[in-house]
Amino acid sequence: MSVPDGWLAYGDEQQERVGFFTDTSVCIGCKACEVACKEWNLVPEDGLVFTGESYDNTSTLGANSWRHVAFIEQEKPLRLDDEDGEPLRWLMSSDVCKHCTHAACLDVCPTGSLFRTEFGTVVVQEDICNGCGYCVPACPFGVLDKRHIPSLPATTTRVSGSEPQASERPDGRVWKCTLCYDRLKGGHEPACAKACPTDSIQFGPLDELRARADARLEKLQQENWNGVQLYGRDPDDGVGGFGAFFLLLDEPEVYGLPPDPVVTTRDLPGLWAQTALAAGAVVLGVVASFLGGRR
């Protein structure tokens, strides 16, 4: 079933489900999307760190980066039939929250801060989030994170493994792409898509985008593009399809994306069953311990 959880509840107010098709075959890595997102959403700058990882100094999605453009330098031809051409290619891809049909973050949020909008998107309500952090490891794509401002010193970024110190978290809430909920309400396209000069980020009704993506895939396959594939387009995948899906030119993991993401709550019924059994076992165990008398 690929109807977003909670979306149907809107009844009359329900809007067409919208999302993104990010076609990385035309992404020029200009990062206009990153900047436009920050400008529009007042997302803070979070550190001047030279990574040396090609032209990517943003590194990852997080509380302060709702769009992230990945840069991958590869010794692979762009097209399969291109033996004599330049053996080098430079893949660029703008990542974002996937607005999953079955969104783990939303499922696990204990406060209801994360909710499904009438557009079928997934949004954090900043006035409700209490920073419990549960959504952070729940997301199969590592999209969400807690905001720490002032930012951690470069040497202790979260990726390096150390846990944040209590004194470094004056904001403490989690943040992520809202698919520009405010702009959607005003009838505008999201800031990142608006800024994208090459239409690598295409915004629109999801059904339309899927059709467009299928045509695009076919074209690029005919043109022999190396590694071309759609990622997250399939409504039958582990998260019920992405609201923001991609055309990639290599395996997802190359871009830092999980190859076969699954919404963690898919396994929750079984997990609850185990938990209930174990809870029962606790009682049984305790009762059993009384069998041997008082001493």
Binding site: G62, R158, G161, E163, G256
Partner: peptide
């Protein structure tokens, strides 16, 4: 390096502390 993106995590570590 085709297994991951500069060895960076795919998912986020929990934010939970001690």
């Amino acid at each position: 390096m085709s297994d991951s993106y500069y060895g960076r995590p795919v998912i986020k570590e929990p934010t939970w502390t001690w």
